[in-house]
Design a protein around this nucleic acid. Structure first.
Lengths: 188, 188
DNA sequence: TCGACGATGTCAGTGACTGTCATAGACGGT
DNA sequence: ACCGTCTATGACAGTCACTGACATCGTCGA
């Protein structure tokens, strides 16, 4: 194997993140990304469906781990407890990646199109979590609402985690956000 | 006055919804929408920022009413009660539009790009609701989580409302979804 | 009557994305 | 050693969303 340099996909992802961070998403052309990776524009689109997707290659793994942990929870566990196991699994997956996650998130936050893509990934996560809960016997709309709540907790915790001064681990922040949500919804 | 036919903006929106429903979003070109409205492609882009935005012209009004109701709630009202007033205001705004809302939603649901746009509109709603709560003295992350929860309630209720067999009014469905969320989050 | 204005048309250009065909090394079978 | 197949890539033309610049032409106020 090796008529070409290895890991074309990874080189494209790295080049894209670097260029998006340097000069902005809109000011970067796919041709430039491909050139920096030593490839052509056409090859970029063979690896990634579009210009945004190159930043979201890892979202499938996140979804898989989250769902796996929820599905593996004891049958007796109530929905929010099962989802908590999923949140823990995701936090563990991110634990070593704060630096990368922070840089990537800065690029996404800076551009509306990228934010759209991020939101649909999270919506997809809500959808599969809802399905997972339903197959565990949770009825609607409790399943959807629990899944939405869990993802909201993740969003809030993640945002805090990558903040400059933050030192607490992601797992702790998800637990705190979850406790906060419970307080808000039971208090009113 | 009228050197041109009136309401070019409305004609474009109507033509776009019709064509998206007939042959699908991707199979419709902006030139075709403009032609059906008796205008040119360039004029379409003077009225709408892009091909998707033409379906979301009313989102500003929804945001305004929701926020207005929350901001107008008694100062003493806890966050979720204030948000409930917002949900009621939005339900009232939609009351007469079930038919239109349903057709529009079918188009959006059928296409990933349109779903992305819808999600970012909802995210924007969460953001302004969060700001509104914060200016009412609600701390973070309670403000964000309450806003996320309220919008999740709206999503779930709206989806049920436009379902074929559903007969209950939207306002009732939002109240039921809210009660369900409270049950889920307090039970675990 | 005239000039500013506002909504539209016209046209050329950029860049994302796609379909199609060509190329060249790797690999397995004979 | 040869040959056919497979796979990742390149080359190229084409469509369409979207933008900037300039022209046109009723309308309205001075």
């Amino acid at each position: 194997m090796g008529r070409w340099e290895p890991d074309a996909r990874g080189r494209l992802a790295k080049a894209a993140l670097a260029l998006y961070a340097e000069r902005g998403y809109e000011q970067t052309t796919v041709a430039e990304i491909a050139k920096r990776a030593g490839l052509t524009e056409r090859t970029f689109f063979r690896h990634y469906a579009d210009k945004r997707e190159v930043l979201f290659a890892g979202s499938g793994e996140l979804e898989g781990r989250f769902v796996g942990a929820v599905a593996g929870a004891p049958t007796s566990a109530p929905p929010l407890d099962a989802l908590t196991l999923g949140l823990d699994a995701v936090a563990e997956m991110f634990a070593d990646q704060r630096e990368f996650a922070s840089r990537r998130q800065a690029v996404i936050t800076a551009n509306a199109e990228l934010r759209e893509r991020e939101l649909i990934k999270l919506a997809s996560l809500v959808a599969v979590l809802t399905d997972t809960l339903r197959s565990r016997g949770v009825a609607e709309p409790a399943a959807s609402l629990s899944a939405e709540a869990a993802v909201a907790v993740f969003k809030v915790a993640f945002e805090r985690w990558i903040a400059p001064d933050e030192e607490r681990p992601l797992a702790q922040l998800t637990r705190e956000a979850l406790a906060e949500l419970k307080a808000v919804t039971s208090g009113a």
